[in-house]
Design a protein around this nucleic acid. Structure first.
Lengths: 252, 252
DNA sequence: CGCGTTGAATGATCCAGCGCAAATAACCGC
DNA sequence: GCGGTTATTTGCGCTGGATCATTCAACGCG
């Protein structure tokens, strides 16, 4: 680690050559979707994928691109985004190793509804949409697991609709920080660190607000002693208090 | 039709006895999920369902209830809702015949994330969640079609997140009216009538606003000549103009 | 047809959050 | 270590939409 860098967030330390056949074999073998399949089947599935490396900031696909491939995150983190006319994108999801993305519909989407962008260095496994469909048709347990994942995402999206409709920006930011900590939190001296680069703009995109407002809220939460933060990082120091804000407990 | 009623929306004319075994057979035979299955299989599937009738306003299940059943709308319309602390629910979706609802996850949901309520007289077909899972495991084409439906709902929910984040109430209402007209629109003298009861409160719940604000917007759209409306109904008279509002074309 | 109920419309007031801008701080390359 | 760039912070004014209340209109029942 460089002596000069002061962020507690570890960079994704994937060297370009590490996005390799071996990694692909390792990742596919561990995907919960394929759990329980015999090794011969996993080997056959493996041959349908190919690995692709992306630099931070690089776009994997744009909204409106033909939806010809599905992807799995092998390593690194991927942002799924939708554009708005304000120029400030909403961040639909942040994907971590094992997550599938692209167009999950097996018949309807001709184009991608979201833009996918590498947030860190990323190794993704790509598969033809038709090949993916064939796998789903051949292995019902895989299809059920993809359905489960999609259903969970639907639940989260509907929850965000509810919160955008009735909760304040502060409540939404508190909720989102807690969710990120559940997924990526690592206990450290600075608190429960969300182990990924997280700018104010990212947080704004995830909570339906603007960068300036997200910055105001984060600064206030820090003054109140609930979090520590810096440039592109946040650590939670008082989970309970944040939870109370997220759920609107107390004075309104 | 009563001479006194002035709404152009037809009531759902389901008599209680019409929620019957015959209707069940008819509906299940027509569900796109089961399209292509041999009659013997459809008959077997049919035996897993039972039909239940509901009165307008009656709750089918509440958020937090154990998720032991899945449902299909056989006739009528069902509201899927999430509650907020403001007391004004958000309307996640309005389901029409053929739509599946309940908890779609095959493993994770112990409780329903949404409340389902009959908006009109409703006949629903109910099936044990375990039986439904067995059908999905046995018939991959069914699982794929449920995945497609869930994926489409995810896309809509993410689109609503985007609109709530960056669009005005008027734009959201215009968009929602157009979507409802796509699904339930019938050309009549009053315009393209959305053929279902649609109160200002319903519209507010679907667009993340309050009843009073929805009323103001609907009144303004009517004064501008884009719609006709009355108590619990809306008909679109200028689809293009509404589309321009929805997409934010022109002055901002 | 009258009355009571329900739903809609509208007025007045307030404020959360936005837009815009400027200043400050953190970071990185040389 | 310095300079340039990027990200964050903060101030100020504005406004879309919420809240609350009141009035009006539509509807259904007796």
């Amino acid at each position: 680690m460089s002596e000069r860098r002061r962020s507690p967030v570890e960079p994704e330390s994937i060297e370009p050559h590490m996005c390799s056949l071996d990694l692909r074999l390792e990742i596919i073998g561990k995907l919960p979707f394929f759990e329980g399949l015999p090794p011969a089947e996993i080997e056959r599935i493996n041959q349908s994928f190919r690995e692709i490396g992306y630099q931070p900031g690089e776009t994997i696909f744009f909204t409106g691109d033909p939806a010809v491939r599905l992807y799995v995150v092998a390593s690194g983190k991927v942002k799924l985004m939708r554009h708005t006319f304000t120029g400030q994108d909403i961040l639909v999801d942040i994907l971590t190793p094992g997550d599938v993305f692209g167009s999950l519909s097996t018949l309807g989407d001709e184009t991608y509804p979201n833009t996918a962008q590498a947030q860190t260095m990323v190794c993704a496994l790509a598969i033809n949409a038709e090949d993916f469909r064939r796998i789903l048709a051949t292995y019902p347990t895989v299809a059920l697991k993809v359905l489960d994942m999609t259903s969970a995402r639907l639940n989260e999206a509907q929850e965000m609709v509810r919160r955008l409709s009735a909760h304040s920006v502060e409540q939404r930011i508190a909720y989102t920080l807690l969710k990120l900590a559940e997924k990526l939190g690592e206990p450290q001296d600075v608190g429960l660190l969300i182990q990924m680069p997280l700018s104010r703009e990212d947080l704004a995109g995830m909570t339906g607000t603007t960068t300036a407002t997200a910055s105001r809220v984060i600064s206030q939460l820090q003054r109140d002693g609930l979090i520590n933060s810096g440039r592109q990082w946040v650590a939670i120091t008082d989970v309970e208090a944040l939870r109370e804000i997220a759920e609107g407990v107390g004075a309104h």
